[in-house]
């Protein structure tokens, strides 16, 4: 399994520079109190990992990976683990920089706001992974791009219909008692989502023929 992770990291290493540049841009913009672009960084790591699927597809790696020991299982597992590691690493770096910026600008650290922003971003990013990866495994990267567009479009349409027909504020008010547990609920929900997504992707890849 480690081998598959190393291969994925080796494939995306040329993009590390891009992440580095984005981190610097983020830090500079933060210092001058411009726009907060911290959410872009973890999101970028998923997009970069998605490009690794393109490389695999283009170079016909998938068929070969099956001829390696435990290849069907480990190639899927490694994609999830590498992506999650990337997201966590970039998020930690972003949080540290955010703390520094907050301290330099205001002489205090706004822990709560920074952490909540980062939790939200990590949750959103993992949501993309959760939906995107099974679609990629099923239909390939190119079709998955169209798929994700349709998915987001569908969610927006359904969402706006729901807002029109359902009194959302009443529902939110009734959920207010959950507020204290929000972070924990979000973490549990994320873990479940990612796990289910992994299981689905593994199942799809275990039946795939090349």
């Amino acid at each position: 399994m480690i081998g598959f992770i190393k291969k994925d990291l080796a494939m995306i290493k040329s993009n590390f520079k891009l992440i580095g540049i984005l981190i610097v841009v983020y830090a500079v913009m933060g210092l001058f109190d411009k726009m907060d672009i911290s959410f872009i960084l973890p999101f970028m790591s998923v997009m970069i990992m998605i490009s690794s699927f393109s490389y695999d597809e283009y170079n016909k790696w998938d068929a070969y990976s099956i001829s390696l020991p435990n290849g069907r299982k480990n190639s899927v597992k490694s994609k999830y683990i590498t992506t999650i590691l990337m997201i966590l690493l970039v998020s930690i770096i972003t949080v540290i920089i955010s703390f520094l910026i907050s301290y330099i600008n205001t002489k205090t650290i706004n822990y709560e706001q920074i952490l909540v922003t980062m939790f939200g971003t990590v949750f959103g990013t993992l949501l993309v992974l959760t939906f995107m990866y099974p679609i990629i495994y099923k239909f390939g990267v190119e079709k998955a791009r169209i798929g994700i567009f349709l998915l987001v479009f569908g969610i927006v349409i359904i969402g706006s219909l729901l807002v029109n027909y359902i009194n959302l504020s009443n529902i939110l008010k009734s959920l207010v008692f959950l507020e204290d547990y929000l972070i924990i609920i979000l973490i549990i929900l994320t873990i479940i989502m990612v796990y289910v997504s992994y299981k689905i992707s593994k199942k799809i890849f275990s039946k795939k023929e090349f």
Partner: peptide, 23 residues
């Protein structure tokens, strides 16, 4: 296999690191 199958952006050193973790 009959088609080329290594990702083109890897180097032989990357292949070694990968396979060391597989076999």
């Amino acid at each position: 296999l009959d088609d080329m199958f290594f990702p083109e952006i890897l180097t032989p050193v990357d292949i070694n690191n990968t396979m060391k973790g597989i076999y």
